[in-house]
Design a protein around this nucleic acid. Structure first.
Length: 430
RNA sequence: GGAGAGGUCGCAUAGCUGGUCUAGUGCGGCGGUUUGCUAAACCGCUGGAUGGUCGAAAGGCUGUCUCGCGAGUUCGAAUCUCGCCCUCUCCGCCA
């Protein structure tokens, strides 16, 4: 969420940003109004508590001086004060809860470069990289290839687990592992710290990195436990320094996260989301950076470049898209997606589909998680947290199957993955 | 999962028959004295969150909260009661 102090001091900047997000800027005034009410009520409670503290001490003294009558008189008087404290405290807590709830609805302050737009149709293409393949034969989509090459079993998964699950088999499993090892090796070489995370988090930890709406639409809850399945390793990794103050010299903290990801994927999905494109479970290598506020946009570029390099090495054609004001999430100040070319999509005419998502969340998550750093001069400040996909397994597998299929029905493995494929350079070759 | 022990202001500990605990002590940290320099010794200082108020600011004054978390008893809770979480030891189970 936004820092309340920032909202108090810069209501106009927040309003302007909210307007660009197509939110009702009235929420800002509502937060400030609740804040004023809270302060007023807080004063009432604090004065009552002060009285309680003073008189309690008087009672103590009276008892010591054996003035039992005086003590009893004051105790009687204080019973009413205790009642009032209780009532007033309830009001304070209610106001505080409302204030926080409203504050959490405000989006991060948008970066100036975010293009205006009403929804994802108005995201802006920044560039295209690589050549879209031209096939001189009728192509198959990843579902057909997956079945014919004995790589993907959707039917059994539907029976055992439900829609949007899959059994991955044979070379597809090697591909999944290869993609992850490839991504890990690239990031290790760049000095990132490798971390495999818990796959479940408690609510307090998860709330830091996750928008309220996401809880309902994407997060699985473990029954009868304060535990949720993570949607991405971003969730455990942004909570890594919850309630902590990081030393300035520890920054930047560059992390390569590895985990499975679990998502409900509620909502209607079209034909192009079939197969293993949109699934409840996949693996992901993630990039996370903790840094000083003045450095965050430099690291945004670094994270984006890292991912682009990987897709170039994998020889997958892609484009980079900047997310517009109407599509960007509440926690992001700036977001770029990479969309890889998937020939099997759009009735086999092909289309670009999202494979990575690079976000600068600035201090938005750090505020909620209370993660600060201490500057050399001793001042504490919220740090900035960024995240970007390095590589997932399922969607790149879709892209590889569909882009590198041959007339004979085999699939060539991109050279970059050869070292991780047990000598296999082509799937299905007899 | 069972039994026991424990979670205290950076770290380590005291307090736990309710009111001089507005939490003591040691270490660490900061400042100083001594010193050619370092160390040692000695002296002084020493948390966090949040509200009000004064101030241009640095900061000052002041209130409240903070002894794992939450609830309760009480005029008053680190201290008593209940629930939960976590850590350690032993047992059981298990890759």
């Amino acid at each position: 969420m936004l820092d309340l102090n920032f909202v108090r001091k810069n209501p106009d900047a927040v309003k302007a940003s909210e307007k660009r997000r197509h939110h009702d800027p009235k929420l800002v005034a509502q937060v400030l109004d609740l804040d004023e009410q809270w302060k007023r009520e807080l004063k009432v409670v604090e004065e009552l508590k002060h009285k309680r503290n003073v008189v309690s001490e008087e009672i103590n003294q009276a008892k010591k001086q054996k003035k039992e009558e005086l003590a009893q008189k004051k105790i009687k008087e204080m019973r009413e004060v205790a009642e009032n404290i209780k009532k007033s405290e309830e009001k304070v807590n209610q106001l505080l809860e409302n204030r926080t709830k409203t504050l959490k609805q405000l989006g991060n302050i948008l970066h100036a470069s975010v293009p205006d737009g009403k929804d994802d149709s108005e995201n802006v293409e920044i560039k295209k990289v690589g050549e879209v393949p031209k096939f001189n034969f009728p192509i198959k989509d990843h579902i057909e290839l997956g079945q014919e090459l004995d790589l993907i079993d959707l039917d059994t998964a539907a029976k055992t687990s439900g829609a949007r699950f899959y059994y991955l088999k044979n070379e597809a499993v090697l591909l999944s592992q290869a993609l992850q090892r490839f991504a890990i090796d690239r990031l290790l070489k760049k000095g990132y710290t490798l971390i495999q995370t818990p796959y479940m988090l408690n609510k307090a930890a998860l709330e830091g990195g996750v928008n309220l709406s996401e809880f309902q639409d994407t997060i699985y809850k473990i029954e009868n436990e304060d535990l949720y399945l993570i949607g991405t390793s971003e969730h455990p990794l942004v909570a890594l320094k919850k309630d902590e103050v990081v030393e300035e010299k520890e920054l930047p903290l560059k992390i390569c996260g590895v985990s499975a990801c679990f998502r409900k994927e509620l909502g209607a999905h079209g034909r192009d989301d079939k197969g293993i494109f949109r699934v409840h479970q996949f693996n992901k290598v993630e990039q996370i950076v903790y840094c000083k506020p003045e450095d965050s946009y430099q690291f945004f570029d670094e994270l984006q470049k890292n991912s682009e390099e990987m897709f170039k090495e994998l020889e997958l054609p892609f484009r980079v898209v900047q997310i517009c004001t109407g599509d960007i999430g509440n926690k992001q100040a700036l977001q770029y997606d990479i969309e890889a070319w998937m020939p099997g999509q759009n009735d086999k005419k092909g289309s670009y589909r999202e494979v990575t998502s690079c976000s600068n969340c600035t201090e938005y998550q750090a505020v909620t998680l209370n993660t600060k750093f201490m500057r050399q001069n001793g001042e504490k400040e919220y740090l900035h947290i960024l995240n970007n996909t390095a590589l997932t397994d399922t969607r790149p597998i879709v892209a590889i199957l569909e882009n590198f299929q041959t007339k004979s029905g085999t699939v060539k493995i991109p050279k970059a993955l050869w070292p991780y494929m047990n000598g296999i350079k082509e799937i299905g070759r007899k």
